[in-house]
Simulated assay, not measured.
Amino acid sequence: MSSFSTQTVNNRDDLLDIDLEGDGSFNTRLKWGYLDNTDIEEWLILDDGFVIEYQGIADTFIGYDLNDDGKVLDDNCYFHYVQASNATTGPQYNNVTTGC
């Protein structure tokens, strides 16, 4: 018996929900076979110093809000994740550390 199960998302060929524990609760989502950006913060253990900022539906920024304006982009100290855009283009990610 498999320890996990999957379920497709209605009317979406790009999304797949996964039950990692096999308990019937689907606790993560893949987009085109890669982690959906909406699930990143669920799978990271972050201390209270980190801020998560979303830009549009595909971009996630996790970093430090050094100037206390609620954003990390203008502080240049973050991890940037862009979710997969289609079946042949996987996610992109990079670190920006010029402001750290």
Rank of each mutant, 00 (worst) to 15 (best):
L44A: 08
K31H: 05
D65F: 11
L30P: 02
T6C: 10
T8Q: 12
M1Y: 04
Y34Q: 03
L66C: 11
D17L: 13
D65G: 04
L20V: 08
D65K: 03
A58R: 13
C77E: 05
Q83W: 12
Q92D: 12
L16I: 06
Y93I: 01
D69I: 02
E42F: 13
N94A: 13
I45A: 12
N86V: 03
D39E: 14
I62G: 01
F61M: 08
N76A: 09
S3Y: 15
L35T: 01
Q7E: 13
T97G: 12
P91W: 06
S2T: 11
L16W: 07
T98R: 06
L15N: 00
D69Q: 04
T97I: 15
D48Y: 14
E21L: 15
D13R: 09
T28H: 10
I18R: 01
G33E: 02
R12L: 04
N27G: 10
D19A: 15
S2R: 04
T98S: 15
Q92N: 10
D74E: 13
F4C: 07
N95L: 15
L16R: 02
Q7S: 06
D65Y: 12
G63V: 05
G24M: 14
V51S: 02
Y34K: 03
G56D: 01
W43C: 03
A84G: 01
D69S: 08
V51M: 09
C100Q: 09
S85D: 09
N27H: 14
F26Y: 14
I40E: 01
N27Y: 14
D47S: 13
N10A: 11
I57R: 06
K71G: 04
W32E: 01
A58C: 12
F79L: 02
G49E: 13
I45D: 14
S3D: 08
P91M: 01
F79T: 00
W32S: 00
S3P: 08
L73Q: 10
I62R: 02
T98L: 14
G70L: 06
Y54H: 05
T6Y: 10
D75N: 12
Q7V: 03
